[in-house]
Design a protein around this nucleic acid. Sequence first.
DNA 1: CTATTTGCAAATAATTTGCAGTGCG
DNA 2: CGCACTGCAAATTATTTGCAAATAG
Lengths: 162, 162
Amino acid sequence: MKVPSVEVERRLAQFKAASRKGGVKLTHQRLEIFREIAASLEHPDAETVFRGVQRRVPTVSLDTVYRTLWRLNDLGLITTRCPRRESVRFDANLSRHHHFVCTRCGLTRDFESGEFDELRIPESVRALGHAETTQVEVRGVCLRCAKETKTKRGIATKKEEP
Amino acid sequence: MKVPSVEVERRLAQFKAASRKGGVKLTHQRLEIFREIAASLEHPDAETVFRGVQRRVPTVSLDTVYRTLWRLNDLGLITTRCPRRESVRFDANLSRHHHFVCTRCGLTRDFESGEFDELRIPESVRALGHAETTQVEVRGVCLRCAKETKTKRGIATKKEEP
DNA sequence: CTATTTGCAAATAATTTGCAGTGCG
DNA sequence: CGCACTGCAAATTATTTGCAAATAG
């Protein structure tokens, strides 16, 4: 599975516009780093983004990836997640969305839901601050892990995300 | 603000029971490490837990804190969060709960909501896996940050969590 | 042109591991 | 008593920084 290229292009266009407005330069590396996240369903971490970009821009350096990612994050052009023990992961989906997280393997996927976008905030939250948006994380077992359970009953095998 | 001591004791009792059942030893350090998280509203990181425990158990070491936290996490006795750029934070609130996160300072507070516990899962999630629970993250501006904005119009000052 | 951004290499911070001794059950 | 747990110190990551050269606008 991949992010449809139409959607990738849409994200890229939005990114370019926002970059110009934000006064950041549109370098080759920066564009490719963004593209890498925008095209991925995996919410990749810095290292993974680096390896992906490296295939297209062999001279790119890991520190540029780190710098760029945090820079884009500060500008609000991407956001961060960290579903599990490992390092921070990045998300270029700026549309309102929610997450499905597999409690076995950590697989994290976006999904949209108008209903979840409009949740009524409980009274008690008033005491904490002024609520602006809600994001729901649905936890469960992904299809692949569920299938594995059926085959080799209950042995939680460590594995990579698809 | 602090977690009421009745609640801390309840969490401790639950922890002791679960530890015995899980076959892990109830050492002094382990108990104090758990107490530190159980008594905190802040979802502290490893370093912070370490400093807190150190006041009561001066000989405790940072690596024991790390090992213990991940051990407890693996046993399901605590959970993890990482609301911002900094390192992973831990949560000893095992009751069903949701989070309010301040987008300015990162303050994270638990709250309960029967309504949020029972959200109807959208159809589209079926394609991803078998949903089990939902956790809502409400994002907004905490009271303290909101107050600051009113005083010094719009300058986002960096600050510690309360 | 000139302020940003990059790549490199080196520094720092965060986290994990090996090992010998300690203590819970 | 034995095995899980601890503290120490050293190792390993992960991430950040300083600086000179490169480049977008």
